[in-house]
Amino acid sequence: MIQYLSEDISSPVFLRRKVTAWIKRVAANHGKKIGDISYLFCNDEKIITINRQYLHHDYYTDIITFDSSDGQILNGDLFISLDTVASNAKEYNTPVQQELYRVMIHGILHLCGIDDQTDKDQELMTTEENKALQLIDF
């Protein structure tokens, strides 16, 4: 089950059933199934608080993924700062909706085991994000 929640910010507008089906398809392409996934949309202040408290990082980010997967079943909490998503969309000259989908699937790809710590890992992550974005049929 995938939940879409928000805290101290308006929920983004998107077709939830279609996005859920897309996320499941991307997970399946990586040999995984969706278990319990919670997307928690928040603002920059919430994301930096989480980043400081749990990861001991002192910076804003677009997504923080907490992985509680069990084997091939993906479980996790994905915190997404809609403020940073909007800033990134402006910086990269891309529609906010597209940037939101990129960030949403970025978290799922982390749960699938794809990392982005090194330049090589980041290249693979970007490739997989782009492949996933091509699967959106709405």
Score class of each variant (00 low, 15 high):
Ser87Phe: 06
Phe79Ala: 04
Tyr92Ile: 04
Ile50Leu: 15
Asp77His: 06
Ile47Thr: 02
Ser69Thr: 02
Leu55Gln: 10
Pro95Lys: 15
Asp70Asn: 14
Ser68Lys: 14
Thr49Ala: 13
Ile50Cys: 11
Asn88Gln: 11
Asn51Ile: 00
Thr61Cys: 13
Tyr92Glu: 13
Leu55Met: 09
Asp83Glu: 07
Gln53Thr: 15
Asn93Arg: 13
Asn88Tyr: 08
Thr94Arg: 13
Tyr54Val: 09
Ala89Leu: 05
Tyr59Lys: 12
Thr49His: 15
Thr49Ile: 08
Leu78Ala: 05
Tyr59Gly: 07
Asp77Arg: 11
Gln72Arg: 13
Thr49Cys: 01
Tyr59Ser: 15
Ile73Tyr: 06
Thr84Tyr: 06
His56Gln: 12
Leu55Thr: 03
Leu78Gln: 05
Thr65Trp: 05
Thr84Phe: 02
Tyr92Cys: 09
Glu91Pro: 03
Ala89Gly: 10
Glu91His: 11
Asp67Glu: 05
Ile50Arg: 08
Asp77Cys: 12
Thr61Asp: 04
Thr49Ser: 13
Ser81Val: 04
Phe79Leu: 00
Ile73Val: 15
Thr61Met: 10
His56Leu: 11
Asn93Thr: 06
Ala86Asp: 11
Tyr59Ile: 09
Tyr54Ala: 09
Gly71Ser: 06
Arg52Tyr: 08
Thr49Phe: 14
Thr84Gln: 15
Ser87Cys: 09
Gly71Asp: 09
Gln72Phe: 01
Asn75Phe: 05
Thr65Pro: 02
Ile50Asp: 05
Glu91Gln: 12
Leu78Glu: 04
Val96Ala: 11
Thr61His: 03
Ile50Asn: 07
Leu74Arg: 06
Ser87Glu: 14
Asp58Phe: 14
Ile80Gly: 05
Arg52Trp: 08
Ile80Asp: 10
Pro95Thr: 10
Leu74Asp: 00
Asp83Ser: 06
Ser81Phe: 02
Tyr59Met: 11
His57Gly: 07
